[in-house]
C-alpha cells in the first residue's frame, strides 16, 4: 500500500487546487462561447433576421423556459451543499435539473419530428445546426450532471469532493445560457 497517499491525492482537492481547477473550468466554458459566436454570425450572414412563419413559437418558448428553470434549480444544488441533509437536497436538485433539461431536449426532438423547415432552406439549415449544437452541449452537460449524481450517491459531501458537482453545474448553467441565446437568435431576432 505504498501508494495510498498518492491515490488519495489524486481525488482530494486542496483550496489552491480548487481555485486552479475552477479557473480552468470557467476558462474552458469561456472558450465554448466561440462556437456559438461563429454559428450566430453564420445565421446572420445566411438569413439575416428571417424567422420562418412555420417555426413553432410555443415550443421555442417552452424549451427556453425549461432550460432556464433547470439552470436555476441546478444552481440551487450548489447552495444546498451545507447543512444536515445536504446530500439529499443536492441530489434532488440535480435530478430535477436533469429532468427539466431532458424535457427541454424533448421539445426540440419533437419539433425536429415536425419537419416544418427543410434543412435545404436558409432558415432550416441554421435552425437545425444551432438547435443541434444546443443538443450536443446539453448531452455533454447531462452526462456531467449524471456523473455528479452518481458520485453524490456514494460520497459524503466533503467540499473537496463536491467539485465534480460544482463543475457540472457550471457547465449546465452555460448550456442553458447558450440555449436561451440560441432561442433568441433563431426564434426572435
Amino acid at each position: 500500500m505504498t501508494n495510498a497517499p498518492e491515490q488519495r491525492r489524486s481525488a482530494a482537492l486542496t483550496p489552491a487546487n480548487y481555485r486552479a481547477v475552477r479557473f480552468s473550468m470557467l476558462f474552458f466554458i469561456a472558450t465554448q462561447i466561440v462556437p456559438f459566436v461563429v454559428l450566430f454570425e453564420a445565421k446572420y450572414l445566411y438569413d439575416g433576421s428571417y424567422v420562418s412563419p412555420q417555426a413553432d413559437q410555443g415550443f421555442g418558448v417552452a424549451g427556453a423556459v425549461l432550460m432556464a428553470l433547470s439552470a436555476w434549480v441546478a444552481w440551487q444544488a450548489l447552495r444546498a451543499r451545507t447543512g444536515p441533509d445536504a446530500r439529499e437536497r443536492v441530489a434532488t436538485r440535480l435530478k430535477v435539473a436533469a429532468g427539466l433539461g431532458l424535457l427541454a431536449m424533448l421539445t426540440v426532438i419533437y419539433q425536429w419530428g415536425l419537419r416544418y423547415a427543410s434543412p435545404q432552406g436558409r432558415f432550416g439549415e441554421m435552425y437545425y445546426v444551432i438547435s443541434g449544437a444546443d443538443m450536443v452541449y446539453a448531452v455533454v452537460g447531462l452526462i456531467m450532471v449524471g456523473i455528479a449524481i452518481l458520485r453524490n450517491a456514494r460520497q459524503d459531501m466533503a467540499p473537496e469532493r463536491f467539485w465534480t458537482a460544482e463543475a457540472s453545474v457550471y457547465f449546465w448553467v452555460y448550456v442553458a445560457l447558450a440555449w436561451i441565446a440560441s432561442w433568441v437568435v433563431v426564434f426572435l431576432l
Partner: peptide, 24 residues
C-alpha cells in the same frame, strides 16, 4: 500554496482551508 498539501501532510483536512467559512 498552489501545490497539493495532501501529499505531504497526512493530517491534511480540507475543512481547515475551505474557501467559504472554513477558517483560512
Amino acid at each position: 500554496a498552489a501545490t497539493s498539501r495532501a501529499t505531504q501532510d497526512p493530517q491534511f483536512d480540507w475543512h481547515d482551508y475551505a474557501p467559504d467559512g472554513g477558517g483560512v
